[in-house]
């Protein structure tokens, strides 16, 4: 079989050579183009010939330099082919190559699952098949948004803007009314000043913020108590009036008192002061201050109701 193959290639090669042979002299009439370049007289002659030829036939586009490179390359190819075939024929005599599968220990060891995957698989929930393809999903969504036509994205944008406007409309109207009362009517749909702050606050709350940014964080305790009491009183009044008028209101949400974590543990045998942990009684600064006592009696401070200053947690 190899012998036959070589035969065919030989013949093919011969053919190719024979086909190229008439072309070569047509491009460069002299057998060696390098000589033609070096010799100026020969070049002139060539030019004359070429002009005569081109006057009769089509113009020639010939680069003798390239031609040279091509021929060289072709020679190399032919040589390669020759060596290839001899290689295969010799391969048949050699014994078959043994394939060894080698998976090294280190390679197995250093492939580690990500923490997220571990959590997803080893949690008590049945593992979902979509967990590892998180990155893929992200990528997909991105590409889909890119692929979407611009009208779709603009619709989405307008939709969001409309939602925001609806949410802020009451702020804007009140702001506009006040502005109209004071000076020139502010008819623009974008909130400015205090209204802008309020709108941001509403947006944050809608997105899940726990408290409003306008809620005052620190104030005197009596103040806060008053506010809370007033709010409760107002709510009670509203409910009472509704009850008397026979209006069914929404169900009351009962606020659970949960301060379990903060509350001081008073187990039997526990210390009456400080925290006993790890075989050590720990006293906080406040405890020490209470004991050294420049704030008065400790027990009185705890028991006293009206004494707003002795704040113990």
């Amino acid at each position: 079989m190899p012998a036959l193959a070589t035969m065919t290639t030989r013949t093919l090669k011969r053919k190719r050579v024979t086909r190229e042979e008439p072309e070569q002299p047509s491009r460069s009439p002299t057998p060696s183009s390098s000589e033609a370049e070096s010799d100026s007289d020969d070049g002139k002659l060539q030019d004359i010939f070429r002009k005569a030829f081109e006057a009769k036939f089509k113009p020639l586009d010939v680069e003798p330099k390239k031609q040279k490179i091509e021929t060289v390359v072709e020679d190399v190819e032919e040589e390669d082919e020759e060596s290839d075939w001899s290689g295969i024929s010799s391969d048949g005599d050699e014994p078959n190559v043994e394939v060894v599968e080698y998976t090294s220990r280190t390679q197995l060891a250093n492939e580690r699952a990500s923490k997220a995957e571990l959590r997803a698989f080893m949690s008590s929930k049945p593992p979902t098949s979509s967990t590892p393809s998180l990155t893929q999903k992200k990528h997909k969504s991105k590409s889909s948004s890119d692929d979407d036509d611009p009208t779709e994205s603009s619709h989405l944008k307008n939709d969001l803007a409309l939602q925001k406007l609806l949410r802020d409309s009451h702020l804007l109207s009140s702001a506009a009314a006040s502005a109209a009362a004071s000076a020139a009517a502010n008819t623009s749909l974008t909130a400015t000043g205090a209204a802008r702050h309020k709108s941001t606050d509403l947006q944050l709350l809608a997105l899940g913020a726990k408290t409003s940014i306008h809620a005052q964080k620190s104030m005197p305790m009596a103040h806060r108590k008053g506010i809370i009491a007033k709010a409760r009183e107002r709510e009670e009044k509203r409910r009472k009036e509704a009850r008397e008028a026979g209006i069914v209101l929404e169900r009351e949400v009962k606020v659970k008192k949960k301060e379990g974590g903060k509350e001081r543990e008073r187990g039997v045998g526990g210390p009456s002061v400080g925290r006993f942990k790890g075989g050590m009684l720990r006293l906080s600064k406040r405890d020490v201050a209470d004991i050294t006592g420049h704030r008065g009696d400790r027990s009185a401070g705890r028991g006293g109701r009206g004494n707003g200053k002795s704040r113990r947690r």
Binding site: F121, S124, P126, P127, T128, S129
Partner: peptide, 10 residues
């Protein structure tokens, strides 16, 4: 059961 049976309920 957790990794091969329970996901089938999906």
């Amino acid at each position: 059961v957790r990794t091969a049976i329970l996901p089938l309920y999906r």
